[in-house]
Design a protein around this nucleic acid. Structure first.
Length: 257
DNA sequence: ATGTCGGATCATATCCGA
């Protein structure tokens, strides 16, 4: 079974691009983030034509998460309890024999901004929620845009970004706490020394210069087992058939479940 | 280059967020 996560940066603008990727990579379970649309505007019919049934937790203009599955997913959770004011950022379903979560973690803007402590608190609540729902003890995958570089190698400019947003010890401690629940970053486990990024700023030719960050992850519990392949789909950060890509590349993994 | 995107709005230009 192929699972994936992708921050699409606006599903209405990205739909044709997403369809190209779905046809090329044939995933079975996809966590989408940054839909930027309300539930009633989700393109169910077009995605059903591609062979997917979607569960959606949308929001007007900002945020919004969804899961694409091969069979009707059962919704287990919409939203991180206690954090509704930060928008639609979490959706958990039962699909493909897994608990499967799509998360769009808060950006935080900058250290010192009022959003930064909110980001840290959001991560603490995410860990609490996963623990309280017994997620680590079950076959589960949490996929999404975490807006944190867990280690120096996950940044194109670790030295220059020291103590800057996405690179702080505070954020890294919150991310590590998720792993300490009993989850593993599937990409990093299979590629322990590889520097690869999943996001590049649209501005300043960042992609061309490979000035990126690895901030999109598939976190899996022990019940999922080892992935036979995990890739960051850099090809799909490039234009496809003249269509503009998201600023994030998809990340996919082949798991045995 | 504070350089590009997507989306919303007292819209046809400017803002916000990333």
């Amino acid at each position: 079974m192929r699972v994936a996560t992708w921050n699409v940066n606006g599903l209405r603008s990205r739909l044709d691009f997403v369809k190209i990727w779905l046809r090329e990579r044939r995933p079975d379970l996809v966590a989408l983030q940054e839909l930027k649309l309300e539930d009633e505007r989700f393109p169910h019919e077009e995605l059903e034509a591609e062979g997917f049934v979607a569960a959606v937790y949308g929001q007007k203009a900002w945020n919004g998460v969804a899961v694409l599955a091969r069979e009707e997913p059962e919704i287990l959770q919409k939203g991180l309890p206690g954090h509704g004011e930060l928008g639609s950022r979490l959706l958990t379903v039962r699909a493909g024999g897994l608990s499967f979560t799509s998360v769009y973690c808060p950006n935080g803007k900058s250290v010192g901004h009022e959003d930064f402590p909110r980001k840290l608190a959001w991560f603490e609540s995410l860990a609490d929620h996963l623990r309280a729902t017994g997620t680590p003890a079950r076959p589960a995958i949490v996929g999404g845009d975490f807006n944190i570089c867990p280690e120096g190698t996950d940044s194109w400019n670790e030295a220059g970004k020291k103590d800057k947003i996405f690179h702080t010890d505070e954020e890294r401690a919150r991310f590590r706490a998720l792993l300490d629940l009993g989850m593993v970053d599937l990409y990093r486990r299979l590629h322990p020394d590889r520097q690869a990024f999943s996001w590049w700023d649209y501005r300043a030719g960042a992609f061309h210069k490979n000035q990126g960050l690895r901030i999109d992850f598939l976190l899996a519990t022990a019940g999922v087992g080892e992935a036979s392949a995990v890739e960051i789909d850099r090809e799909f950060r490039k234009k496809q058939e003249g269509l503009t890509p998201s600023d994030h590349a998809p990340v996919w993994a082949d798991v045995s479940a």
